[in-house]
């Protein structure tokens, strides 16, 4: 999938000169990731469409790209913005306040007043991802929980834990501060963990 991609220094002039081979390389390297990000924000039904729209925006904006981030991060930010705009058009919002504000972290009733576990985590009968995913039911449960995450939480989780981007790039892509980015990721992970926990209870 991701073959050796030339450096941004080499790629950008070629893209600006409309070099088709360079576009093919960039599309091969980044399109899958773009669809994953779009899916996290707008859902599967229109993710492909949003990714395509983002490519057109990339072509249009490339002459003005100031290179304050890598090409990859810049392209992903265009995807993120295209997806957010799409949500707004459909009167669905993607505000950071919603996402950070009302989603409780771990259920506070799990702890007593001194901060010790009141209802400790149960033992999972699994030691590896393969053990967990052997259950179709649990797999479906993780999938449902992922889809129900607030948009930005799902985007942060997708980019970090599923597509392996570093936190600094993710915060640039989603246009959130480093600390908010960490909170988004932390909450998303906790939600998935809580869903698995519930499954084993």
């Amino acid at each position: 999938m991701n073959q050796q991609l030339p450096s941004d220094d080499e790629l950008i002039p070629r893209l600006l000169a409309h070099d088709e081979a360079a576009y093919t390389q960039v599309v091969s390297a980044y399109h899958g990731l773009m669809v994953h990000l779009a899916r996290a924000i707008v859902g599967a039904a229109i993710a492909d469409e949003v990714a395509q729209e983002a490519w057109l925006a990339v072509i249009k904006a490339l002459p003005r790209f100031e290179r304050r981030s890598s090409l990859k991060t810049w392209i992903l930010r265009i995807v993120s913005n295209t997806a957010k705009t799409r949500l707004r058009h459909e009167s669905r919002t993607v505000s950071l306040e919603d996402t950070l504000g009302d989603q409780a972290n771990i259920d506070p009733s799990q702890f007593n007043t001194s901060g010790r576990w009141a209802s400790p985590p149960t033992v999972w009968h699994a030691d590896t991802p393969d053990d967990l995913l052997a259950s179709q039911e649990l797999r479906a449960c993780i999938d449902t929980t992922l889809r129900a995450l607030p948009h930005l939480q799902r985007a942060a989780l997708t980019l970090r834990d599923m597509q392996g981007l570093d936190m600094e790039s993710i915060c640039k892509v989603l246009e959130v501060s480093e600390s908010n980015g960490r909170v988004l990721l932390h909450r998303a992970r906790n939600r998935i963990q809580a869903a698995i926990e519930e499954f084993y209870q």
Binding site: H36, P121, W124, P129, T158, D161, M162, Q193, I196
Partner: peptide, 23 residues
């Protein structure tokens, strides 16, 4: 209990990675 919690979080993260690799 906290060891268990942290272990579970680590397993959750690696499971998400596994799902993504399959996808």
């Amino acid at each position: 209990y906290c060891r268990r919690h942290v272990k579970h979080l680590g397993l959750t993260i690696s499971t998400l990675g596994k799902i993504a690799a399959e996808e």
